[in-house]
Structures are given as structure tokens and as C-alpha cells.
Design a protein around this nucleic acid. Structure first.
Lengths: 145, 145
DNA sequence: ATCATTGCAAACTGTTTGCATCAAG
DNA sequence: CTTGATGCAAACAGTTTGCAATGAT
């Protein structure tokens, strides 16, 4: 009988790219894997420390680097020029407030966009094999009342 | 009679955002305003020096910062994590080679995409007033023969 | 048992800042 | 003239590295 598809855990995601599963990595991935969470390295460190997690700042840096290289998280510069990280796994774009600098996650489905279809379409038009993409929208949010 | 539309020069672009026109700024904008040119601060410095331009590295940094804040240039992290700058004015996306890290400019029209129409569409769907966007496509280029 | 990973402290490097001079408007 | 911009050298801050201890497979 065919093996059932494994449930996607952080452990399995790490294994898939040849990385060992460790507490720091579990904690980092888990912390980043939420909507609208894009901390700097330092903020992530403080956040984990506050939860009582024993972890070193250099371990944070090292793993952010490794995880990014393996495509498990995304690194970007916010409008203030600070380096931030994003590990939310739902396909999404970023809405960036030009006034405040705030970065908000926008699920692609809210744009009526299908990730796979888009990748295919762009691949056809460019000749490249496009495997992933990032979309950053910059502007001002609707006035709230 | 209505004044004719000014030709867009670096001077006029600087003026539009309230910045003085100076030699360093002219040189930086001019150097960056080409397809497939995305230097680091250091590379830009070396490039201008090689052309015989008298300019200081701190001036480069200062102006890259100021020009970015005013939206005249774009700053991004390449796959190696280096900070690079882009000042090409034709609306375009970035094609990033996942193997080599090379970044290639792709005019939006090659994607059959109209910038203004897209901004309008996205504004409608999100409720934000979206004024600009960045699209980064990641994958592998067509095998050349 | 083996070898990747951790985490501290030290080192490093890209970037920013203080300040006197200079030049754009 | 007035005020912002330049650019050197010094200071800084975020990030990386060396290495002994640890822990995942």
C-alpha cells in the first residue's frame, strides 16, 4: 500500500532540505509562521527569550541565514531599511504602508490570484522556470472610521 | 498658454521631491538608471571612482539612503544577502536565478502587464491606495544552447 | 559513535555620524 | 547670503566567526 502523505511539520520541512531538527529551529520556524509577524533578528531573539526559550543571539542569526538559504523563510528590508523575516507559509503578498512603514500580509486569494497558475503563466512568458515569487504592494491603507 | 511638460531630467526628479541637484546625486542616479545594473554601495563607489568622479563613500551611503527614502531608487537584498540598489525607471520586475543569484530586469510589458492597470486593479481588491509595487520572480533561466 | 548544531565572546564589516568646508538656489 | 550637501575620519551596530560543549540521528 502506498504510504500516506506525511503531515507537514517543521521537522519534515527541515528534513526535506537536509537540515537537522533542533529546538532553536523549531522555535524560530514556529514563531515566524504567523500572519503579520515579521520581526528583526533582535526582536525574534527578545520574543523567544520572553517565552523562556534558552537560545543565543548568534544561533538566531546563524539559523535565519541557513533557513533563508534553504528557502524556508524569506528575508526583506522594510521601508525603514531594517532587515526583517517572514516565515508564514500561506502564499501571500506584502502590503507596505508608505506613511508608517507597517507591513501587512495579504493572502493571494484575496487578490483572486492562484499561485500555481501564476507561476505557470510567468514561466511561459519569460522562458524561465519560475518556482516562486514575491509581490510587494506599496501605498496607503483605507481610512478607518 | 499652458506650460509644456518639462522633460524629465535627474534635476527635475530631484526637485520634485525637494532635493537639491548636486554632482554626486546626478552621478548616482545616472549610474543606476540602466537595465540590469544593481550594484552594492561599494561597487557603485568603485564604479564612479573608475570613471574619475570625485566622490566619498560616505556620500554614496548618505545619498543612497536619501534617494531611497524619496522613492527615487529601490533597495533590495540579493540571494546572497547583499544589499543592492536599482534605479532603472522603466517599470520592471526582477528575475532571480536561484542557482547563481544573478538578478535580471524584466520589463513589465514582457509579461503583458500594464503598470497602471495593475495598480488600479489591486487597489480595488484590497481597499488600499496602491501606488507602486515590486515583483520578484525566482527560478532558473532557460538553458542556452 | 559521529558529526552537525549550539552559544558565548571576540572579531569583523558595512553603514552611520561629527564636523569643518563647500556650493546650490 | 543662507542653507543644505560633501567627504574625511572616527564611531557604531548588526552580523559573523572561532571554538569547546552539546545533542540529533
Amino acid at each position: 500500500m502506498p504510504k500516506a502523505k506525511e503531515k507537514e511539520t517543521y521537522r519534515s520541512r527541515l528534513k526535506a532540505v537536509g537540515l537537522r531538527h533542533t529546538m532553536p529551529r523549531e522555535r524560530i520556524l514556529s514563531h515566524l509562521d504567523r500572519k503579520n509577524v515579521h520581526p528583526t533578528a533582535e526582536e525574534l531573539y527578545q520574543g523567544l527569550k520572553r517565552k523562556g526559550a534558552p537560545i543565543g543571539l548568534s544561533t538566531i542569526y546563524l539559523n535565519l541565514h541557513v533557513l533563508r538559504e534553504h528557502g524556508l523563510i524569506y528575508e526583506f528590508k522594510d521601508p525603514k531599511g531594517e532587515t526583517r523575516f517572514d516565515g508564514w507559509t500561506e502564499p501571500h503578498a506584502h502590503l507596505v504602508d508608505l506613511e508608517t512603514g507597517k507591513v501587512v500580509d495579504l493572502p493571494l486569494k484575496d487578490l483572486g490570484l492562484d499561485r500555481e497558475a501564476f507561476l505557470k503563466e510567468v514561466s511561459g512568458k519569460t522562458g524561465w522556470e519560475v518556482k516562486d515569487f514575491r509581490l510587494e504592494l506599496r501605498g496607503t491603507p483605507p481610512a478607518k472610521e
